[in-house]
């Protein structure tokens, strides 16, 4: 198996199939740690991980923080409201200041696409993208793929449909890159206003027909719909969205018998997914959360030495 060579993890688009597989296999080795009575290994002892979050996030931040702690790293959380960004300091200034305190890894969530790329160029510390704007959210896609692999035994040859706001979704983009590199067939589905421009150049199929997206799929990854999009006239109302694209038991009648239902969370119950589907027998939503921990431990472990 190859070694990890990168200082940072910014997105899946720039990774090779082998590199993605390495992360998934490493994550597989880490999963067991969270089942031990003492859920901790000394691997990153003495390393400092900064969680630099410019957008509210509970699950991703918690997941990264626990992952770092289970590897014995020290963690510091900085959120936009407590940092000096509000005082007119630029992102780079703040990052340089944090780096001056000798930190090893910066996990960053930011509402601007490309913000982690700016940071990665500015600092020597490793940067892990925990979601940037509408660009990528690599660890979410990795945990999605990990969960699919765990449940289905493979990724290659599977049909995965991603349903919802593709245009503004970093989860969709990272999933498209990761899944297709590993040989899955990806279909994206949503109203045309939520399908990105230039989609024909992405390695995906597009449909506006939710039935079609569901029919042959082995996996349905249902995206969260943001309320703000309604205000920009991207769809008329949540009600109409739910009627057309919300996944409920009725629509699942078209699905394969062993279909996996995934959602990156947090769920808008009754909008993009109905409660009976979210809590139903095909849902692996909570397993995604569990696997997120293993994936993030693997990523922290790999980048902690990468690129030196």
């Amino acid at each position: 198996m190859l070694n990890w060579k990168h200082k940072d993890l910014l997105g899946l688009e720039e990774l090779s199939k082998e590199e993605i597989e390495l992360i998934l296999e490493t994550a597989d080795s880490f999963k067991e740690i969270s089942l031990r009575p003492i859920k901790k290994v000394p691997t990153l002892r003495g390393k400092t991980v900064v969680l630099f979050f410019f957008e509210p996030s509970t699950r991703t931040r918690t997941s990264f923080e626990l992952a770092a702690k289970r590897l014995s790293a020290d963690t510091v959380s900085i959120s936009a409201t407590t940092s000096s960004i509000v005082k007119g300091e630029t992102l780079k200034d703040t990052a340089k200041n944090i780096e001056a305190m000798k930190v090893d890894i910066i996990v960053m969530r930011h509402s601007s696409s490309g913000a982690p790329h700016l940071l990665a160029k500015a600092v020597e510390a490793s940067v892990i993208n925990a979601g940037d704007g509408c660009h990528e959210h690599p660890t979410q896609a990795l945990l999605d793929m990990f969960t699919i692999k765990e449940k289905k035994g493979r990724i290659s040859g599977l049909k995965v449909s991603i349903i919802g706001d593709i245009a503004h979704s970093r989860v969709a983009r990272s999933n498209i890159w990761g899944l297709t590199k590993l040989g899955a067939e990806v279909t994206v589905c949503g109203p045309p206003t939520l399908i990105p421009q230039g989609i024909e150049k992405f390695p995906v199929k597009v449909t506006y027909d939710v039935e079609e997206a569901i029919r042959d799929a082995d996996v349905l990854n249902i995206l969260r719909i943001q309320l703000e999009r309604q205000k920009s006239n991207l769809f008329p109302s949540l009600r109409e969205y739910a009627l057309n694209f919300g996944i409920d038991a009725e629509k699942l009648k078209f699905a394969k018998p062993e279909v996996l239902i995934m959602h990156p969370g947090p769920i808008n119950r009754g909008v993009e997914i109905s409660p009976e589907v979210a809590d139903g027998p095909y849902s692996v939503i909570l397993e995604q959360v569990t696997n997120g921990l293993a994936v993030r431990m693997a990523v922290l472990y790999l980048v902690s030495q990468g690129g030196k």
Partner: peptide, 23 residues
């Protein structure tokens, strides 16, 4: 047992060794 995560020389290596499963 895979002892990779407990090694005392991780910081001395140029790339991280592959972690295998502990069972």
């Amino acid at each position: 047992l895979d002892i990779t995560l407990y090694r005392d020389d991780l910081t001395l290596l140029s790339t991280q060794p592959i972690v295998h499963k502990t069972e």
